[in-house]
Design a protein around this nucleic acid. Structure first.
Length: 420
RNA sequence: GUGGCUGUGGUGAAGUGGUUAACACGGCGGAUUGUGGCUCCGUUACGCGUGGGUUCGACUCCCACCAGUCACCCCA
């Protein structure tokens, strides 16, 4: 075990890092365009924050959190998501008081959930997400959804499915809940085990059970849509209108639910079907009650989403959408005779100080081996510190693409590179 | 957390209850003296996820564990 990373974790090796940086750069660029500022919150928080924020009875809180007691006897939890932290920071730093504009955050970081690992589902995974606090209207909803879509489109992903729904608010959801329970009650015994558990906890979930019999039973069930209050209805219409106007391609799915308690009104999810069971690449929604839940003070509306970076990367990889990354170096130093290494080394360091990417052989291998290395490094130029040239205070510079060689005085090497 | 499948070197993999564990890629070395990419040659697992068991004998059979993976669940 000493030599194995813990279950559900993954090293991001140097060969993977370019893809990550590419994804992060794309995210940062688009967030800048949309006016979202980066926030970095702690990787762990007081357990209570998540219990209150996400909801005590959710799966995430009930069975997936990494919770421990620290040496000061505090109950601490590795964040399973970042919305609660962002909201906590928003409250703690009193941004609602000084920021009359909307507060718009984005974040990139590790999240932790104790789940059974699978491709696209790790115990430590990375999310990019955004949060917009303080805006009640449907315009931010649309903005945020379009931001998510744009990130994925910019990366080149096709065949994405954007699903939206309204999960109602504290005014109308309870009514729907009651109607649902009344509808399913006569058939309670017929429901699958999972659904029997959902019956009390989250009856909305009864509607998207994959068990065929449950689906049959669900036919004709009261939809949340028809129970929405006027405010929620108008809000949802507003979101749809703006999305349509902006050319957003979406599908209304009345059975789309969210597993975290804080969601209200708009809920959405972007799926990439080829990922199989872990096809949800992005999910989010409005959480108008969360700020108050956490602050115990004033209410502030909010909305956000999170995107699973591993999942996006899997999708990009499977579609061959990762760009080619330039790993070439400017110069490789070949030194056939060990006695001359000091000059070669010194020149190499000077070139690096001048800003060039330079490599050389650490092991005193044969010249042929060093040339092979130069090739593997994709060196543009090779500097050969041969005896003959050195006698003239010069080196041979070989252009690896054209195989042309010329002799350059050592003192002029940097000048020479500056002209390339 | 539930069920299924899988686990051979750096990588992709072939393989059988019983001598020295194919092959390919990669790595390293070499093919006349100081020169890469192509070609050719050599070399590269005292080991078959870990630990038990069955057996005269297991990498091949059984069990447990660990890990990966698929589906469920959940979610990003």
């Amino acid at each position: 075990m000493l030599t194995t990373a813990p279950r559900g974790t993954k090293d991001i090796m140097p060969s993977d890092v370019n893809a990550w940086r590419y994804l992060e750069a794309t995210v940062r660029k688009i967030c800048a365009q949309y006016g979202y500022k980066e926030i970095r919150t702690p990787v762990f928080e007081h357990t209570e924050l998540f219990q209150r924020g996400i909801g005590d009875t959710t799966d995430v809180v009930e069975k997936e959190m990494y919770t421990f007691t620290d040496r000061g006897n505090r109950s601490i939890t590795l964040r399973p998501e970042n919305t609660a932290s962002a909201v906590r920071a928003y409250v703690e730093h009193k941004l609602s008081k000084e920021d009359t504009l909307a507060t718009k955050f984005f974040y990139i970081g590790s999240m932790f959930r104790y789940d059974r690992p699978q491709a696209g589902r790790l115990r430590e995974f990375h999310q990019f997400g955004v949060e917009a606090l303080g805006v009640p209207g449907p315009n931010v909803d649309a903005e945020i959804i379009l931001l998510a879509v744009q990130v994925l489109k910019e990366l080149g992903l096709k065949d994405l499915k954007l699903k939206i729904n309204s999960v109602g608010c504290p005014n109308c959801r309870p009514q729907h809940r009651e109607k649902l329970q009344a509808f399913f009650k006569p058939h309670f015994e017929e429901l699958c085990k999972d659904c029997q558990g959902r019956f009390d906890r989250n009856p909305l979930r009864l509607l998207d059970c994959k068990n065929p019999h449950c689906q049959e039973l669900g036919v004709g069930a009261p939809s949340l849509e028809e129970c929405l209050c006027d405010d929620c209805k108008a809000h949802f219409e507003g979101v749809k209108e703006l999305l349509t106007a902006a050319g957003g391609d979406f599908e209304v799915d009345h059975n789309l639910g969210r597993g975290l308690d804080y969601y209200t009104k708009t809920a959405f999810e972007i799926q990439y079907a080829p990922l199989g069971a872990q096809s949800a690449v992005c999910g989010g929604g409005r959480y108008d009650g969360l700020v108050q839940e956490i602050s115990g003070d004033e209410a502030r509306p909010g909305i956000g989403f999170a995107m699973g970076m591993e999942r996006v990367l899997l999708a990009l990889e499977s579609q061959g959408l990762l760009p080619a990354f330039d790993e070439s170096i400017d110069a490789y130093i070949v030194c056939p005779k060990k006695e001359n290494f000091t000059v070669a080394f010194k020149t190499g360091i000077e070139l690096r100080r001048a800003g060039y990417k330079v490599e050389y052989d650490f092991f005193g291998r044969s010249m042929k081996a060093q040339m092979k290395q130069a090739n593997k490094f994709q060196a543009k130029q090779v500097l050969i510190f041969g005896e003959d040239e050195l006698a003239r205070n010069a080196v041979t510079v070989r252009n690896m693409a054209t195989s042309e060689q010329q002799e350059i005085a050592i003192d002029d090497i940097i000048k020479f590179f500056n002209t390339l």
